[in-house]
Write a protein that binds this DNA or RNA. Structure first.
Length: 584
DNA sequence: GCCGTTTTCGGCCCGACTGTTTTCAGTCG
């Protein structure tokens, strides 16, 4: 774990323990915010001095001192003190959906419940019912939450959530009286994992919309069903995903979409900006508000300044429109911020990383190329695995030479697309490549990727990747960190150094679009771009449907601020060819 | 604990749903 994640985790824990010991809620929030800010940094915060630390938004004197304390001692006194006061199991109880700090504290202090096992015993003994505010229904809800959490696999990868969300949107569109439907939330922002799916809906007949949603095929449990919000758990494969339906009015669609798209921090920023302008922003719109009323403006019949569209709200706040992917509270709400012209799915004209049956793909060279042509690409690169990837049936030197010939022949025979001969060459653990330079020079394109020894420490791993970037015959570093979302952590990248080296050597760093990888991730893209590096977005195609991964790669790259000028897959055939041959 | 076009004190985003309340507290997003 990187130092930043470790410190962020400590601050998250401190925030929770402060809450449980009854600390001032603003102090709690400050700790939670510090955790978010630290987690987002691409520079190791333990290398910063106090002045640099306090420049970060949300990090003041106190937090800076604690970070310095961690850098010096490897721990933080305040964290140790809190840990000695709050039993570990109470923090686990706090993780249960529906159980907040007040309830966890109450059960701990009044009943001595300090872990899930104790909580289950107390429920079995009916020992919770005499607690203030806890009735039969609440206890049943906690019981179900324990069961749910036991099966919970955490956040859902975007590759699973997106198809489900699209199915829900499509189904709601078919309901009589439904006029408008869209998904919002972290899914619309293109995050790599999704907590729950938020669906916004305008319906003439709210009751039937609600009914249709809560009785959708796959619905396992209805968590809530009110006037404007319904919440269900729905099956997607072996998983249960929470989905919320929000019924809104057409005339505040934009405000609602903005509100439910988030991110939370981005929204809080916008509300603060609104207040400074004598306005108030909520999911019903942007209103004039002098702050003297007890009831919200929409319930007093006040007409909003803006509410129909998101762009009208940004405009009324004197801010540039921010696409959902960039609503991350990373400066995009500042006055004078300029919106980058981000890469779009249709800008991608080449797939530079694809496998055939020669290694571990399912298609022939021709099938692979035919699919690429069907998507309107001008170039497809055949990059089968190299010899060390034995599990993937990697090609030895003789097989690769024959494969190059086969690619050249296919290229002769197929019209309308250029097929290039390449290889996804293993970066061996010391940073050397899996073929000698003569053979590499015979290839049109070299994608160099780490496949084995993925548990190397940061020093070795970054030296390994750096050596590959510096290799004069390498074009792209494939899935640089080697992570698999939720199952393998991968390398802790020194992305600033790697990005700068990639720029110097005209190497592109890949965003592998496979939703299990998304590697580089969004924050890496942002940092690599800041260093001047080029980015490749590749599907790492093994099967026909893998071309559909492209959208996830593009979303991730957009979150990192990628424009098409810096994306090699969006270049014209001439530009791409010039770059590839410049390294031969 | 953080922050400043209300700047070193006094604020700190806003609303819906549920359950246990008889007017509201807790949780969530």
């Amino acid at each position: 774990m990187s130092a930043n994640s470790e410190i962020a985790e400590i601050f998250d824990r401190m925030a929770k323990m402060l809450e449980l010991t009854g600390a001032n809620r603003f102090r709690v929030n400050a700790h939670a915010k510090a955790a978010r800010v630290i987690r987002e940094q691409t520079t190791d915060v333990t290398t910063l001095d106090k002045k640099e630390l306090t420049k970060l938004d949300g990090i003041g004197d106190g937090t800076a001192d604690k970070i310095l304390e961690f850098a010096a001692n490897g721990d933080i006194d305040e964290h140790d003190e809190l840990t000695s006061k709050v039993p570990e199991g109470v923090l686990e109880i706090l993780e249960l959906p529906g159980v907040g700090p007040k309830t966890a504290k109450l059960m701990w202090e009044e009943k001595g419940i300090t872990d899930i096992a104790g909580l289950m015993r107390a429920i079995a003994d009916d020992a919770l019912l005499d607690l203030k505010g806890l009735g039969k229904k609440s206890v049943e809800k906690i019981e179900r939450a324990i069961e749910f959490q036991a099966k919970d696999q955490g956040r859902t990868p975007i590759g699973r959530a997106m198809p489900l969300a699209e199915r829900l949107v499509e189904a709601m569109r078919g309901v009589t009286g439904v006029e408008r439907v869209a998904y919002a939330g972290s899914l619309r922002r293109g995050q790599e994992t999704i907590g729950d799916i938020d669906i916004l809906c305008v319906a003439k007949d709210r009751e039937s919309a609600r009914e249709a949603f809560t009785s959708m095929p796959g619905v396992n449990e209805v968590l809530a069903s009110g006037e404007t919000k319904s919440s269900v758990r729905i099956e997607q494969g072996s998983r249960l995903i929470q989905a919320d339906l929000r019924l809104v009015e057409e005339d505040h669609w934009g405000a609602a979409l903005m509100y439910f798209t988030g991110s939370k921090d981005h929204n809080v920023r916008l509300r603060e900006i609104a207040i400074k302008k004598g306005l108030t922003l909520n999911e019903y719109g942007l209103f004039e508000d002098d702050g003297t009323h007890d009831t919200p403006p929409q319930s007093r019949g006040v007409h909003p300044v803006a509410s129909m569209t998101e762009s009208s709200i940004f405009e009324a706040l004197d801010r540039a429109f921010v696409v959902p992917e960039l609503r991350q509270d990373l400066g995009e709400t500042q006055e004078g911020w300029e919106a980058p012209d981000l890469i779009e799915l249709d800008d991608i004209k080449a797939e530079l990383h694809a496998h055939t049956r020669a290694s571990d793909g399912s298609m022939t060279i021709e099938e692979l190329a035919q699919r690429a042509k069907g998507r309107g690409f001008h170039t497809i690169c055949v990059t089968d695995h190299s010899k060390s990837s034995t599990i993937a049936n990697g090609l030895d030197e003789d097989r690769l030479r024959a494969h190059i010939d086969a690619v050249r022949e296919a290229n002769q025979n197929m019209k309308g697309i250029t097929i290039l001969a390449g290889s996804e060459v293993d970066i061996l653990s010391d940073g050397s490549l899996d073929y000698d330079d003569d053979l590499l020079a015979a290839l049109d394109i070299v994608v160099a990727s780490p496949h084995a020894a993925l548990t190397q420490g940061p020093k070795e791993a970054n030296a390994r990747l750096l050596r590959a970037i510096e290799h004069s015959l390498v074009h792209i570093i494939g899935h640089p960190s080697g992570r698999l979302i939720a199952s393998r952590e991968g390398f802790e990248l020194d992305i600033n150094t790697l990005g700068a080296a990639a720029k110097e050597h005209a190497v592109a760093l890949e965003v592998n679009a496979n939703p299990k990888r998304l590697d580089l991730r969004d924050s890496h893209v942002r940092a690599a771009l800041a260093q001047g590096a080029m980015i490749a977005i590749d599907c790492d195609v093994h099967r026909p449907n893998h071309y559909d991964f492209l959208r996830y790669g593009v979303l991730t790259a957009r979150r990192g601020g990628l424009t098409k000028e810096r994306c090699v897959n969006a270049w014209s055939q001439a530009e791409l060819g010039a770059w590839l041959t410049s390294k031969r």
